[in-house]
Write a protein that binds this DNA or RNA. Sequence first.
DNA 1: TTGTAAGCGTTATCAT
DNA 2: ATGATAACGCTTACAA
Lengths: 359, 359
Amino acid sequence: MGRKRTKPGKVRLAEVAMLAGVSPITASRFFRTPEAVSVAKRVRVESAAEELGYIPNLAARALASQRTEVIGVLIPSLTNNVFSDVLRGIYDAVDGTRYSIQLANTRYSILQEEKLLRLFLAQRPAGLIVTGIDQTAESRSMMESVDCPIVQVMEIGPNPVDMMIGFSHYEAARAAISHLLAQGFRRIGFLGARMDPRVQRRFEGYEAIMKEAALLDPQLVVTTTLPSSVTVGGALLTDLLSKAPDADAVFCANDDVALGVLFECQRLRIGVPNEMAIVGFNDLEFMAAAVPTLTSVRTNRFEMGRDAATMLVERIEGRQPLEPIVDLGFKVMERQSSLGRNREASIRKISVTGASGSK
Amino acid sequence: MGRKRTKPGKVRLAEVAMLAGVSPITASRFFRTPEAVSVAKRVRVESAAEELGYIPNLAARALASQRTEVIGVLIPSLTNNVFSDVLRGIYDAVDGTRYSIQLANTRYSILQEEKLLRLFLAQRPAGLIVTGIDQTAESRSMMESVDCPIVQVMEIGPNPVDMMIGFSHYEAARAAISHLLAQGFRRIGFLGARMDPRVQRRFEGYEAIMKEAALLDPQLVVTTTLPSSVTVGGALLTDLLSKAPDADAVFCANDDVALGVLFECQRLRIGVPNEMAIVGFNDLEFMAAAVPTLTSVRTNRFEMGRDAATMLVERIEGRQPLEPIVDLGFKVMERQSSLGRNREASIRKISVTGASGSK
DNA sequence: TTGTAAGCGTTATCAT
DNA sequence: ATGATAACGCTTACAA
């Protein structure tokens, strides 16, 4: 009628308990809250587990306890360097803890994200890391009604679902443009690929400060929904030059676009920065190695992932983090590609470093 | 004494079965093997599940069935573009199946890999994807004694644990050097970073063909165990030039090293390819966009991941794949950076494309 | 601090 | 094709 009994191969908690001469529940306690077990029994259970090579069955644990030790991570892309740095930080922080990562790729679709979120939440994750602040209303209400801690990464904004870590893409773009203005550039183009919400926000920063300087010109803006790449960067520059031949600088929403611009300038024999200044975004490794070295906005992606996971684990384990919203800031790395001639000495110096909120 | 009863919120299989007017086991069968349930009951269970919003409890399923629907993936690095492409392929293939991915980072350490392997196997994964063919003896015997299917990715070699998909790094390097030889280059340097087993194999390919051509010279070899990067590429070139000022070409074991070499040549005003030819490895996107365009060896990383996961799923579900060892080959993408002057017309033309084994 | 009893939600086994 | 029953291995709730 029933099923045949336990195969002898596997070591269960009961075996450990028996060898240690305690009840299963005591052994169970030992693994979860050692301090709740007397020292004498602690050592007996420990050595019994060691001797038998006991490995807990996570499925049984999850079923009995009604929760898992899985942290769900939703990111838009596996290809983009930016996210792989964040991921590395997450794995780094989780490494050595009892938690494991369940990763899923939304492919920049908030509908896909909603679907994955529903899937994840159904398995009662211990915590959740989601990218950005542009979830669907449905996703939002799911996240708000669920009881596990959640961290939104990559940017900061109003109304966090729970915790948040990132920086203001708007302010970062403003700082980049301020730098170009301070260097005397005036006809500054915006080159954007993918145009996901964060690139959109960078554009808004560009737009705002250009408008304030009375320098905004639609001819200076070239974007595409294609994924960003070096090749796309070259094409965007070509487009820009056909619309605004007098452009003297470009702010690229991604570093690979910036590299593509550099190559295109070389191809077209346009001097950088004399005829065309270049500023990128994210400060990938190659930016400092290029010829000329390329200015970019450094963002703290590894730290973002690491701290997000750490905050999450802290909360899962019942501790309250110091701050629910962490602004990791950014830094404009000024390099040769944006060295200006200070064409107008009247340009005020603008601080280009600091926390996003430090307006 | 016991615990309080089921909270009313969650929908269980029993509820679905009751609403459908069948026994729980029939409902269970419907979800796993619909064809084993009569059509009449199928529709009733389906609509009942729909109506109640039933979501299966994976922990209960894993506990009862003694297996999981998790595919473990062990890769050496999250940062390296090469692996993120493979990963993307894996996620792509698994997407939409019932399997999920459990990812872990060995950080290029086979001891770390062994540890993670032990951890994974303890949870009875449905399948496993591991990187390369250089596991520890202990790892190997664990993999051989476990009963789940396993795919080794990134390269092919003798004695697969189970299945294998990749290409011969040795042959790929030979093909790259053959191309340089055919273009008339003679003092061909080897620039290698990280020197993981696959880079090592590329070096062996370089070494063998250079020796055959009686051109091997230790002064032409510069390596480092540092992770590969654009910056490191520049430094390696500098080292090479100090040891072998007459080098006329470099084979870079990674594309980022190749890009670093290009930049360093620009910095030193060394003409590419006239004074220095450059060949990279992997054919990352920027290679075709650089100025001059950079020759590289194209490898099929996305396909590698996708096909590895597909083969695994096939095997998990009981089907035998056509071939347990898949050679995805490679292709030397000849571009401007290795355009030679055919200094010696006597050089025989060598085919540079094809499966790794097609010596 | 420790133990007893019951239950977590599903599937394997055997029988019909 | 369907169902009754027991079992998967652990933890919660409560009592001692």
